[in-house]
């Protein structure tokens, strides 16, 4: 019998090792697996490379992981937010490396990583500073840049429901990077509001098939990052 459910967020992240590459889902707070991130802070792994669209808000979730100085590099499209100085302070003091990637290129690099495609060509960023040092090629008269697929040791993502086989459905625009990150990581961990028995999710509406998910953790009432930021919470 397959059962991917893990007792707790702490148990789900316990084997994250120093130097690991971790993809973290979310676009702003939507889809950010905040309970898994807090468990990772408690767990203590350091020198991490994080691939995520943003760098977090306030001093909770992803921003708290950065503030705890566990992260040596971020791969990111938009590392600025209106209400956090954590990343800018680290970046300006030379304590963190940034690989800035156009958002669509970041998504496709992750998708390619999960799909067994080592590299691909994209028209995005041709002629810009982000093209520097990249191989280019012309197809049918248009220039393209070569970009590499991206893989990770772990992915932390947030869904709405999963069954014990790891089939996941998401909530609205909280889906964002979740499905592709789940494909691209060796060990993919999803937190969901509810875990159900196999058969409870109509196969027609499964978004991430269970083959891409290794661990399922139930967080029945996840906190909203914006509520914590508004309350001035600093984790831990």
């Amino acid at each position: 019998m397959i059962n991917k459910q893990i007792e707790s967020a702490a148990e789900a992240v316990k084997d994250v090792f120093d130097g690991a590459t971790i993809m973290i889902g979310g676009f702003g707070e939507a889809g950010s697996p905040i309970e898994l991130i807090h468990a990772l802070i408690d767990q203590g792994a350091k020198d991490l490379t994080i691939a995520s669209n943003n760098t977090g808000s306030g001093e909770v979730g992803l921003a708290a992981l950065l503030k705890a100085e566990r992260v040596s590099k971020v791969i990111c499209s938009f590392p600025r937010t209106a209400n956090s100085t954590v990343f800018p302070d680290l970046y300006n003091s030379g304590k963190i490396e940034l690989e800035l990637v156009p958002q669509g290129t970041l998504a496709e690099r992750i998708r390619a990583g999960g799909a067994g495609i080592p590299a691909f060509y994209t028209p995005a960023a041709v002629g810009t500073p982000l093209a520097e040092g990249k191989e280019s090629r012309t197809f049918e008269g248009q220039d393209y840049l070569m970009e590499y697929g991206l893989k990770a040791d772990f992915a932390l993502v947030k869904g709405r429901s999963a069954d014990t086989h790891g089939n996941v459905v998401y909530s609205k625009t909280a889906r964002n990077f979740g499905p592709i990150m789940a494909m691209a990581a060796r060990i993919s961990i999803v937190q969901v509001n509810e875990v159900v028995d196999p058969g409870a999710i109509d196969p027609e509406i499964v978004v991430t098939p269970g083959i891409f998910i290794d661990r399922v953790v139930q967080v029945a009432t996840p906190v909203h990052e914006s509520d914590l930021v508004a309350a001035g919470v600093s984790y831990p």
Partner: peptide, 16 residues
């Protein structure tokens, strides 16, 4: 110098 570079989806949008 000192500005935090952030590009989001702009480069993909204008290219496609």
């Amino acid at each position: 110098p000192g500005a935090i570079p952030a590009v989001g989806g702009a480069m993909d949008l204008v290219a496609g």
